[in-house]
Amino acid sequence: MSRRVRALLRKELIEISRHKTGLLPIVLVGVYCLLLAFVLTVVVPRVTGERLSEDADFVKVSLAAGAYPGLSADARVQTYFFQQFLLVFLIIPISVAMTAAAHAVVGEKEARTLEPLLATPLTTAELLVAKVLGALLPAAIVTAPGLLLYLGSIAVFAEPGVFATMITWRSAAAIGLLGPGLSLIALQLTVLFSSRVQDEDTARQLAILGLLPFGGLVAAQFTGRFWISTTGLALCGAALLVVWLLLLALSVAVFDRDRILTRWR
């Protein structure tokens, strides 16, 4: 990473660390995702006295996750839900980090800090990479302990054997490739729009539109209609990283310093 990218990244991290209200939604959304999974799979069955395996639909969709012959019926349903919420847990905090990314260019322009920044030797690619990483890293820093808490809670509260089904290559592919790939694309799209529109809200909304197909994919998996295998997840993650690089190249190509400085109000 170049010295210039590191310098701008340092600024982004200092800014967000001093903007507590900016970090709070990431934490809250993470906690919400965490709680939702456990309320659905652990708390509700205990409170109502109805076992997960008594719901025929749950049992039916959980078959998509695999047979797991050594597990009880309840544990199989839990495995299915915990696998699904793992993806949600990886992706949802990024939607909040998109707020920071939306600020990337248009926010600097509004604060009148963009012109001195563009007067430095910083290249457009360096500027955009630093902005994406500046939004990604805080989300990752918040998500990482949340992820440990998620897996730890599964070890403590879930049915016996469920924790072992979470420590798989599939989970590793989701955490190591799919999550970062989707995050990079989401944030790059937001930064791209942030350099093309004149307010943060529009940038964020347009980026969310661009992400709808991925959200649809995760939602479809929840219905049990299909299940993305370990290889599928790994390939998706790798493909997403390639797409990110293409998006980065597109963002650099359409970034128009002249227009941003002279036409934006």
């Binding site: 210039r4 701008l8 200092i14 001093r18 430095t120």
Partner: peptide, 23 residues
């Protein structure tokens, strides 16, 4: 530039050190 354009949440030293890095 016409406007100072400093990063408000950063200290004076941080503003200058980061620009030193950018240069």
């Amino acid at each position: 530039t016409e406007a100072p354009g400093l990063w408000d949440r950063l200290t004076v030293r941080e503003n200058l050190e980061i620009y030193a890095g950018l240069y």
